[in-house]
Write a protein that binds this DNA or RNA. Structure first.
Length: 615
DNA sequence: TCTCCTTTGAAGCCA
DNA sequence: TGGCTTCAAAGGAGA
């Protein structure tokens, strides 16, 4: 039974910034004393979560926390303004996190499917089984895990459920998380799915397409370097006897990739549609099943040609050129997606459909705010997914390091221009210029709690583990998890989630407790960004402090909209009133509003439901 | 054609 | 150890 973590109450500043999880070793015990009173509430909350009580997943010890965007942003051009403007107009779902009625499920390939049988499986012919996640809890290199995974080959669904499942990535047009979470469509899109999700029309091309095929391998199909090792068509998913679930080249991805890769002609076209041409290597990145590996990208071939020419001119350099060529041909293994990225992939289409926005920057802004508006448990789902992603990625590419993808470390990726440090840049804009449409300024508290930080708060830093103090991986979690630090375990997240009701807010010795509960309850995304000069602790306090006086707000609408923003779109009257003011935020919000996102359909959005009175 | 924008999170690098 | 930087996705916009 999940236990309530007591860390949530005192760190209001982090309330929305963190997702705590129950299993953090001794930490749990320590805080358990302080949280006994909250435990009951936690139990109540936990009962609301359709979490697998039978899930023996020992990886529950994780905690999620988010830190506010420590980003400095440049407002250097109108592009930015236009983006914000677009976001303002379009973001109607700020406080309307997509409802996830049930706890997330993962869609895994249905191994019982007749389509799966040996070798003849078409990537598009897969069916999926619903299963609860977290599922993948495979310790890297663990033979036991491998064995357990091997068992997954059993057609028995029980096996499937009992074993871990690789996080897989959908093809281009397929919802990336579909196979991972069941949030079956109605989870995320209660009611009728948006037109673009009707699975009949390609959102990009507008070309009709097969009905939402949960087909192609999703997140981590197969390493190209391991292709030849896997006899089973679902080798990337189903471990073969004596083989790892995700066969990995002994030396990791850094080893030369096998060239003896077979390519399914049909998959070539599939790949072409799935990836940009330069990302669709002739034979790389393809499993024998033809399943592309989204995490692997072959470098642009164009660059090779020049080298080849040079090599042909100079025989002495020819070999070198060839070597370089080979080197360049090595697929680029991408970083595993983090929780937010997963969320973005999933929700982007929705936002695009709802808001008719195409500009990714604007969409991302909306998504970022929606992300903040998500409840703990909802975010926990993504953290959990991300954790599994990382785990899977680690298993797939044991030798891979994020450094490998740093500029210049692989071909096809040019060094990213270093963002000039813009001192205070953007801050002045975001400080007191809450985006009317986005309703709130982004959280930029650089001291946002993470891991232990989230659990204990700033005033209990002595309880933090070292890495957490450094904003690194929480070693406690690592210890508990065994391999990778990760976000919150889904089962714990809820428990440690901040109170979802005023009564659940535990008093804090900080100044926060003097704040009206309505303010404490406000979603983090509603909080005002603290002044840049404030200390982290001040940030935290301020993060829960009421917004600055309207006088400090942008008179061009920020102030007006801040009033409406505080309620987001929850209060129609409020929206209407703000509309009457002609604020930018109120304009097309309705166009962006989706009832599917309304809190009414998402009862588990306590924070998002909280309103804050600017008065 | 390439880079930027924009978001959050993870991780690497450097002092 | 803290702070900064890069990269992951995405697609339009601009150079």
């Amino acid at each position: 039974m999940p236990q309530l973590n007591g860390g949530g109450g005192d760190d209001l500043g982090a309330n929305d910034e963190m997702i705590s999880f129950k299993d953090e070793g001794e930490q749990e015990e320590k805080i358990s004393e302080n949280s006994s009173a909250e435990r009951d509430l936690a139990d109540v909350k936990s009962s609301l979560v359709n979490e697998s009580e039978t899930n023996q997943n020992s990886s529950s010890d994780s905690e999620a926390e988010r830190r506010p965007p420590p980003r400095s942003e440049s407002f250097r051009d109108k592009t930015r303004e236009s983006l914000e403007e677009a976001a303002k107009r379009q973001d109607g779902g700020l406080f309307k996190s997509p409802p996830y009625p049930g706890y997330p499920f993962i869609m895994i390939p249905d191994l019982t499917s007749p389509y799966l049988p040996n070798g003849s499986l078409s990537p598009t012919a897969r069916t999926y089984l619903q299963m609860k996640w977290p599922l993948l809890d495979v310790q890297a290199g663990s033979l036991q895990s491998r064995q357990a995974l091997k068992d997954a080959r059993s057609p028995s669904p029980a096996h499937i459920v009992s074993n871990k499942v690789p996080v897989v990535q959908h093809p281009h047009h397929v919802h990336p998380l579909t196979p991972l979470i069941t949030y079956s469509n109605e989870h995320f899109t209660p009611g009728n799915p948006p037109p673009h999700l009707q699975a009949d029309v390609d959102p990009k091309t507008g070309i009709p397409r097969p009905p939402h095929p949960p087909d192609i391998s999703p997140y981590y199909p197969l390493s190209p370097g391991t292709v030849g090792q896997i006899p089973h068509p679902l080798g990337w998913l189903v471990p073969q006897q004596g083989q790892p679930v995700y066969p990995i080249t002994t030396g990791g991805f850094r080893h030369p990739y096998p060239t003896a890769l077979t390519v399914n002609a049909s998959m070539s076209s599939l790949l072409s549609s799935r990836f940009p041409p330069h990302m669709v290597p002739p034979h790389h990145s393809l499993h024998t099943t033809g399943i592309p590996h989204p995490a692997i990208v072959t470098p642009n071939v164009k660059q090779e040609s020049s080298h080849s020419d040079i090599g042909s001119l100079n025989s002495s350099k020819h070999q070198d050129a060839k070597k370089e060529e080979e080197k360049k041909k090595q697929p680029h293994i991408k970083k595993p997606l983090n929780a937010f990225m997963l969320y973005m992939k999933e929700m982007r289409a929705k936002v695009v459909a709802e808001c008719t926005l195409k500009e990714s920057a604007a969409i991302n802004q909306i998504l970022g705010r929606r992300w903040h508006a998500l409840s703990r448990e909802e975010q926990a789902k993504y953290y959990e997914l991300a954790r599994k992603e990382r785990q899977l990625h680690m298993q797939l590419y044991p030798g891979w390091s994020a450094r490998d993808n740093y500029a210049g470390n692989y071909q096809g990726k040019k060094k990213k221009r270093k963002r000039e440090k813009q001192a205070g840049e953007g801050n002045e804009h975001r400080e007191y210029f809450p985006n009317p449409c986005l309703s709130l300024p982004p959280i930029t508290d650089l001291s946002a709690p993470k891991k232990c930080r989230a659990r204990f708060g700033l005033d209990q830093q002595n309880n933090w583990c070292g890495p957490c103090r450094r904003k690194k991986k929480c070693i406690r979690y690592i210890q508990g998890e065994g391999s990778c630090a990760s976000p919150p375990s889904s089962d714990g997240s809820l428990l440690e989630s901040p109170p979802s009701s005023p009564s659940m807010i535990s008093p804090s010795p900080s100044s926060k407790e003097s704040k009206p509960q309505t303010e404490q309850m406000q979603p983090l995304s509603l909080t005002m960004k603290p002044p840049p000069l404030l200390s982290s602790s001040q940030h935290q306090h301020l993060s829960m402090a009421p917004p600055p006086p309207l006088a400090l707000l942008d008179n061009s609408g920020a102030g007006k909209t801040s009033g409406s923003a505080h309620n987001g779109s929850l209060d129609p009257s409020d929206v209407s009133s703000s509309r009457s003011t002609g604020s930018a935020s109120s304009r097309p919000i309705s166009a962006c509003h989706s009832h599917s996102l309304l809190p009414s359909s998402a009862p588990t959005q306590p924070l998002s439901l909280v309103t804050k009175s600017i008065d």
